[in-house]
Computed example of a mutant assay.
Amino acid sequence: MKLFEASGLSKRFGAQVVLQDITLSFEEGQLNGIMGPNGAGKTTCFNVLTGRYKPDRGRVTFAGEDITGLSPREIARKGVSRSFQIMNLFDSYTALDNVLVATPHVRKQGFNPWRDLGADDTAQQLAAAILERVGLKGKERTLASSLSYGERRALEIGVALAAEPRMLFLDEPTAGLGAEGTARLMELVKELKRQLTIVIIEHDMNFLFKLADQISVIHWGQVITQGTPDALKQNEWVRRSNLGALA
């Protein structure tokens, strides 16, 4: 079943056309990849799909509901979470508190930075379980600023999971990670794939080709080809490009 669909999306900034007639669909329960060279429009596409930018034309639906033009917060409430290429964490908060403030349980009460989050046992237990899920058990009381780079990446995914999403968008999750950190992240994403529909923009083609069920290639602001990793490895354009060499 198509859980998330985008049809005819276009976006320009001034005179520059960044996206042109983008059509994508993501099956429930699959991991979908988006790849392309730098400047191809991948991140802008992500931002349109998740509500950060409103498309100039086109339509986006989630679970059959039109979400075109809704704010990121409204889209998140419907079950779509995302991470960012540049991490977005509260560095002066502990890992546990970063997750706590993203849970529906806390958000329903309204965000208040002076609230004693430690007094809410239900939310505490939920946040601790999420940290364990992303491999950060034992780091609950560690400030986000004191975590290693790889741990901060895992925490950002934990914050996205705290919203209890049905679908997760990950923007360049391996950026800045070494081989060991990338391997740990791959195991985490494999586990999440069993429970969520996932879409990943990724520059590490080896990482993406090992995980994805389907991949869409964006170039010049357009989807130029789509298919399974094996099919794309045989695609003539992908093979001739630097993407083919990386894959």
Score class of each variant (00 low, 15 high):
F90L: 04
H219V: 12
A175K: 04
I157L: 07
E74A: 15
L177N: 04
A144V: 05
L126T: 09
D121Q: 14
V48C: 13
R59H: 14
D91S: 11
M87T: 12
R133I: 07
G69S: 08
L188M: 11
T225I: 13
E28V: 11
D120N: 14
V134A: 04
N112F: 10
G58K: 06
G118D: 09
R141I: 05
V18A: 14
D121V: 13
P173W: 04
A179D: 11
Q16T: 15
L211Y: 10
Q214W: 13
A63N: 13
R153W: 06
F62A: 01
E65L: 10
L19H: 09
F111P: 01
E164D: 14
A76R: 01
I200V: 15
V223K: 05
R194I: 07
E191K: 15
R82M: 08
H219F: 11
G58V: 08
T61P: 03
E156T: 06
I22P: 00
R73M: 11
A40C: 13
N235P: 05
L168C: 04
S148R: 09
N38L: 11
V223N: 00
G135H: 06
Q20V: 03
I75Y: 04
E132D: 15
E74L: 10
A231P: 02
H203T: 11
T142C: 11
N112T: 06
A245E: 14
D171F: 04
A179Q: 14
E28K: 15
D120P: 05
A40P: 03
T182K: 10
M205T: 08
V134H: 02
D116S: 12
R184N: 12
Q125P: 00
V106I: 15
S81H: 07
S7Q: 15
L24K: 03
A160W: 02
K210P: 03
K210M: 12
Q109K: 15
R82S: 04
T68P: 06
L49I: 13
G244N: 07
L31E: 01
P104C: 08
G64E: 11
A128V: 14
A119C: 07
S83M: 06
H219S: 14
Y53C: 07
A175N: 02
A163C: 13
R57C: 06
G41L: 06
D213K: 10
L117A: 06
L89H: 03
G244P: 02
S71P: 02
I67H: 00
G227Y: 02
A179F: 09
Y53D: 09
F169D: 01
G69Y: 05
N38S: 12
A129S: 15
L117W: 10
A15S: 15
T94A: 03
G14Q: 11
V199R: 01
R12M: 10
T50M: 12
D120T: 04
R153T: 06
H105Y: 08
L161M: 10
L161Q: 01
A102N: 03
M87Q: 11
G181H: 03
S148D: 12
R115M: 07
A119T: 08
G138I: 10
L9S: 02
A119Y: 03
A160F: 07
A119Q: 12
N32G: 02
Q109Y: 04
A183K: 14
A123Y: 00
S241I: 09
M167G: 00
A123Q: 00
F84H: 05
R107I: 09
V159F: 01
A129T: 14
Y93N: 01
E180F: 04
N32D: 07
Y149T: 09
A162S: 12
